[in-house]
């Protein structure tokens, strides 16, 4: 049984393995609470949602909350598909730009030696530590100067320079791509761009797959706040927040919305993780 769950590895004791399984089992039960709770809540009829004392598990599961949500969405002034399209557009463009701009710069910062490299690396680490709440005003002025207020670019373009992505990519390139491999590719006559696209990026696939999850999650929950005014430009979270803010009677619908909103990143996460496992099984390329 234990052999089937864990990878065969050297220098492991049976007692330690059993200890780890117990530890992980308890941890998983504790951590999965929000998932279990949200799923249960979404299927609770109204009388169970307002039950006092509140019950954790659903007793008479129903689809009422979802059908109510469908009715509300079909009555929406701007069709719900429009909000969905806006969200997808922002997420996809923001994610692509972030991964591409970040990994291009990460490759040069990790494997090239040029004047100013140390300074840029330092600036990136420092920028992660400055509270973004106070940079909102200068940012708003910049965006309004560029004429991007009330367009999706106000959300998409700033997302391209989220430093987390670059910093993450740089760490993975540092650790996983041996210098000798890059040298070899150059000797074979590959241009720098080809080295980046065909040597470095395939090796660090786990890095950009992980980055995609993180950026997706961040962009997916964005409401567009101070930049988007036109109703037809707003995102899915805004629309769903408006529906669930419609008073206490919307409690059931709100639970259905919570489940719906969190199921999308979870699906992305599952697809993504299975891809990471695949690469690891086949590439066999490790850090030196």
């Amino acid at each position: 049984m234990i052999k089937r769950i864990r990878k065969p590895r050297l220098s492991r004791s049976l007692g330690g393995d059993i200890g780890i399984f117990i530890f992980l089992g308890l941890g998983a039960a504790f951590m999965s609470m929000p998932l279990v709770f949200s799923i249960n809540n979404a299927f609770k009829p109204l009388n169970e949602l307002f039950l006092f004392p509140p019950r954790f598990f659903v007793k008479n599961p129903t689809m009422d909350n979802f059908t109510d949500l469908m009715v509300l969405m079909s009555k929406s002034w701007v069709p719900i598909t429009r909000y969905f399209y806006n969200s997808i557009k922002i997420v996809v463009l923001g994610m692509l730009g972030n991964v591409i701009a970040g990994s291009l710069a990460a490759y040069a910062l990790s494997k090239h030696d040029f004047p100013g490299r140390k300074l840029v690396n330092e600036a990136i680490v420092l920028s992660l530590m400055f509270a973004s709440a106070v940079t909102n005003i200068p940012n708003y002025l910049t965006i309004s100067y560029l004429g991007w207020v009330n367009t999706h670019w106000s959300i998409i373009v700033p997302a391209w320079q989220w430093t987390l992505g670059l910093y993450l990519m740089k760490n993975f390139i540092d650790a996983m791509v041996p210098n000798t491999l890059i040298e070899a590719a150059r000797i074979d006559g590959a241009s720098e761009f080809r080295v980046y696209a065909q040597v470095v990026m395939p090796i660090v696939k786990p890095a950009w797959l992980t980055l995609i999850i993180l950026v997706f999650q961040n962009l997916w929950s964005l409401t567009g706040g101070q930049f988007l005014y036109a109703e037809e430009l707003k995102t899915l979270p805004t629309a769903l927040n408006q529906i669930s803010a419609g008073g206490i009677a919307r409690q059931g619908v709100a639970a259905a919305i919570t489940l719906m909103m969190m199921s999308v990143p979870i699906i992305v996460f599952i697809i993504n993780q299975s891809k990471i496992v695949e690469t690891m099984g086949t590439s066999g390329m490790g850090g030196e």
Binding site: I100, A101, G102, L104, A105, Y107, A108, L109, H112, V120, A123, I124, S127, T135, N139, T142, V157, P158, W160, Q161, T163, L166, E192, Y196
Partner: peptide, 13 residues
């Protein structure tokens, strides 16, 4: 290589 990122990073961060 770092130009696209650095341009945006300078303006927005």
């Amino acid at each position: 290589f770092i130009a696209p990122f650095m341009l945006l990073f300078s303006v927005f961060t």
